[in-house]
Simulated assay, not measured.
Amino acid sequence: MAFSTQDSDEVLSEINVTPLVDVMLVLLVVFIVTAPLLTNAIPINLPKTEAVAPPEQKDPLVVSLDGAGTLFLGKEEIQPEQLEGRLADAKARDAELRVQLQADDGVNYGEVARAMAAIERAGITRLAVITAR
């Protein structure tokens, strides 16, 4: 603590932060202790229901590029020029069509970009790019 003497008329300009730190630590302990108690403050008996099956989702259409740059739609090998037309036909049959794009990490990025552009031109807005962890 800083004490001033009676014979000195100078103003003490140092702030003692120790009491502030003590108060903040006490508040922190109070919040740590009370926070878990706040989550179960109101006891509620929830009604029992029967399990409901989740809505059925259609499998996405998979567009794949292997290491050699060969393009596949599902399991079928196609030419890059055919991709946009085939996807547009699939989009016409299903307005909620989802597409997954998988590409080997050795494929030139230009091939992947061309496939993505064809998917966009076909009107597909739900595209997922699949990667390995």
Rank of each mutant, 00 (worst) to 15 (best):
A2H: 13
F3P: 07
F3W: 11
S4W: 09
D7N: 11
V11P: 04
V11D: 12
V11N: 10
L12F: 07
S13N: 11
S13C: 03
I15N: 15
I15A: 13
V17G: 06
T18F: 09
P19K: 04
P19I: 04
L20D: 11
L20H: 11
D22V: 08
D22E: 11
V23R: 15
L27P: 03
V29L: 15
V29R: 06
F31E: 12
I32Q: 11
V33W: 15
T34L: 13
T34Y: 09
P36D: 08
L37C: 00
L38A: 14
L38S: 13
T39V: 07
N40M: 04
P43N: 12
P43I: 06
P43S: 12
I44H: 13
I44M: 08
L46G: 07
P47D: 08
T49M: 10
T49N: 12
T49A: 10
T49P: 02
E50A: 08
E50D: 11
A51R: 12
A51W: 10
A51E: 11
A51I: 06
A51C: 00
A53D: 14
P55E: 15
Q57D: 08
K58L: 10
P60C: 02
P60Q: 04
L61S: 07
L61C: 05
V62F: 01
V63P: 02
L65T: 05
G67D: 13
A68H: 10
G69E: 02
G69A: 00
G69C: 01
T70F: 04
L71P: 01
L71C: 00
F72T: 05
F72N: 04
G74K: 06
G74L: 03
K75R: 10
K75M: 03
I78G: 07
P80V: 03
P80W: 00
E84C: 00
G85E: 15
R86F: 06
L87Q: 00
A88H: 02
D89Y: 03
A90M: 00
A90L: 05
R93Q: 14
D94I: 04
A95K: 14
E96K: 15
R98D: 09
R98E: 15
L101W: 03
Q102E: 15
A103D: 06
D104I: 03
D105V: 05
D105F: 08
V107P: 01
N108T: 01
Y109Q: 14
G110M: 06
E111F: 08
V112Y: 01
V112I: 10
R114N: 06
A115R: 00
A115C: 05
A115I: 00
A115F: 02
M116A: 13
A117Y: 05
A118S: 15
A118V: 05
I119T: 02
E120K: 14
E120C: 01
R121G: 04
R121A: 10
R121H: 10
R121S: 08
A122L: 00
G123E: 05
I124N: 01
T125G: 08
R126S: 12
A128N: 13
A128K: 14
V129I: 12
I130M: 12
